[in-house]
Write a protein that binds this DNA or RNA. Sequence first.
DNA 1: AATGAATGAGGCTTCATTCAT
DNA 2: AATGAATGAAGCCTCATTCAT
Lengths: 214, 214, 214, 214
Amino acid sequence: MPAIPAPRRRRKEARPSELLAAALDLFVEKGFAATRLEDVATRASVSKGTLYLYYENKEALFKAVIREGIVPVIAEGEAIAAKHAGCSFELLEKLLDNWWSKIGQTAYAGIPKLIVAEARNFPEVASFYYENVISRGRALVGFALQRGMASGEFRSLDVETTIDVVIAPILMLLIWRHSMSCCQGIESNPQLYLQIHMDLLRHGLRKMEKESQV
Amino acid sequence: MPAIPAPRRRRKEARPSELLAAALDLFVEKGFAATRLEDVATRASVSKGTLYLYYENKEALFKAVIREGIVPVIAEGEAIAAKHAGCSFELLEKLLDNWWSKIGQTAYAGIPKLIVAEARNFPEVASFYYENVISRGRALVGFALQRGMASGEFRSLDVETTIDVVIAPILMLLIWRHSMSCCQGIESNPQLYLQIHMDLLRHGLRKMEKESQV
Amino acid sequence: MPAIPAPRRRRKEARPSELLAAALDLFVEKGFAATRLEDVATRASVSKGTLYLYYENKEALFKAVIREGIVPVIAEGEAIAAKHAGCSFELLEKLLDNWWSKIGQTAYAGIPKLIVAEARNFPEVASFYYENVISRGRALVGFALQRGMASGEFRSLDVETTIDVVIAPILMLLIWRHSMSCCQGIESNPQLYLQIHMDLLRHGLRKMEKESQV
Amino acid sequence: MPAIPAPRRRRKEARPSELLAAALDLFVEKGFAATRLEDVATRASVSKGTLYLYYENKEALFKAVIREGIVPVIAEGEAIAAKHAGCSFELLEKLLDNWWSKIGQTAYAGIPKLIVAEARNFPEVASFYYENVISRGRALVGFALQRGMASGEFRSLDVETTIDVVIAPILMLLIWRHSMSCCQGIESNPQLYLQIHMDLLRHGLRKMEKESQV
DNA sequence: AATGAATGAGGCTTCATTCAT
DNA sequence: AATGAATGAAGCCTCATTCAT
């Protein structure tokens, strides 16, 4: 009674995630267009044809990478927001922490830059990402901002636009790391960068009794 | 010394900039890899072969576009900073205004995204851009921040990192516009976005008498 | 000796004909090259590998389809001719009727077009078909023509060639239906087409007292 | 003053017809799907890429073969019909003669079989051929038949269907030659075959005073 | 006997680059 | 200096066939 399952069958079940891992690495390294499916297959120790048994084409493979890797983190964020009890700025911090540990510090950190770089040429990919990641991510931040404004914790600002101002430095950090990181800049101290960003936000968003507002 | 040069000679001298303009448009629209040199030549009303008389290959053309496009605007910023007299936050505003009118509202607005998207695959281009644009641009913002901290106008923060936090949303705005603009987001109201960014900065940077700092 | 065989055994014996039926349908629909063996297997409710247990490869399957499909109908025609008593034109009509009901109105109607389309690329198949179907079919028509000429019912014409002239419109009807039927043409009224063909033949073959012949 | 034009320029003008000739040969030999564009290019002494300078893709190449090779023959037929003065059966004979010499005895004779074989899988090709060749060809024959019926030279028959009966043996002759020609049959004596076909038609179509009609 | 995962050769098409004119 | 015809390498995707289970 050997504990080892049949290799063939084990393979079958392991393939998708092996392929997705290989694809993530190469997409992040080369971009969408410049990634060769044959290289993905090779990195997953599989032949070119095998890849097509699991994913219809390059685009489907990429979507799967997003679906398996990033969408769940957004969902986690939604759960965090739903059960959050403290003040709204703390919620923003929790969301950032989660994103940072699950995306920012993993290979997935390369995806935002990839999307930005290729969106124009692959609109189908771009809108998939928009629907599943961007719009849900913005909704999350928007929820925290609105909550804070309603409770008087934050000043009243245009929510949709403030969402972008809040998110942009975080995205920029990831984008930077996967493009110009060779050169000095942001990357030198991401922790401090995020800390300062949050610090500026704390002060920038805070409502003060005797102050006129924008 | 005739006032009107021979048309043929005028033509010849104009070629490089006509080619660069065509290349800028197409690189911004399609990205580096997806831009066809034949399209660049056609847009410049020139044959494919002619393009090779002026630029050794696609990458050389790409570098030339970068080289001619942005550096002068950085120089203008340096002049503005040198002769600025008012408070430091006003200097930040002036620098932003200049950048926005000379880059943000022209075809050059596409270059930052271009650089971000292609830096990995063209490291030489990336470091050229870093030397000539990024490091000088960061120095400018750093000058304004340091000036404000020295005068007591701004809180004391890590300057290098704050530079990035200040710049990131502005870059992100340009990047966004040239990638995901098809979908809702930042782009909906860039003026408001910049205003809120500066407003958050004004509050976020401002030193307050009885407050402990980061 | 149980009356009900084990289902498993029944299955096994039925496999070949199930596979041939599926293959016929798909070959007729798509042609030889464009038919995917996976589709054949799926339509026969069998796995791809199983198909190879019964037929060595695609070509062997193709041959088998031909072999099982048409030869029996030719044999029936031979029986009809052997016992025919009436005039020769009636024999031609009987042969046509039989062919039309057994082939022309069944899925086998697609085979002549299949053969015509693929003969060049599969010469072995072509000559198998020639030996077993074409030459015996031509002999049948030749028998009827010769019988009619001998009896004075038909004019004297070159028999071998007339066979082809008689057969061609009938083949063409089947071929047409499986190729250009999407567009207007023959197919609009096959009954009328055959009727006119036979009518022209009746007049065209008939011997007339005071006429010179070809 | 050499009479020889510049080779390069001569090349450019000759290419299209060289490519069409090579394509015709290979399409007729292998069929549409099985013809490799690289082989076409090689046969025209040209590289794979060059072919794409002249024809957008395989389908465009095929359409060009039809357009240059067959459509003009249909047009000739239309001119013949327009200026014909004699009896209607003579017109049918003239049309057949022209078709036979321009198509039947050239490499184009292989096209009808190709169309029949591939129509299902390449509907775009099929309908192009239908529009430009089949429908115009049928109209021609229909014109001759109607003319003969109107003048009392032919019996009254359903014209659309009779068109097919008249054309079918001719098409079948071409189809046969490009599929089963390896085996005995029609091909043995095409001249006699056509003569008998026309002879049967002459007798079959002819109106006779005291005869009941279909 | 049956399965279905895996393979890899092969074809269409694109495009940067060259070079004869 | 200018042209544009020609090249051929490269990538995506398909599918007949194999073989371990």
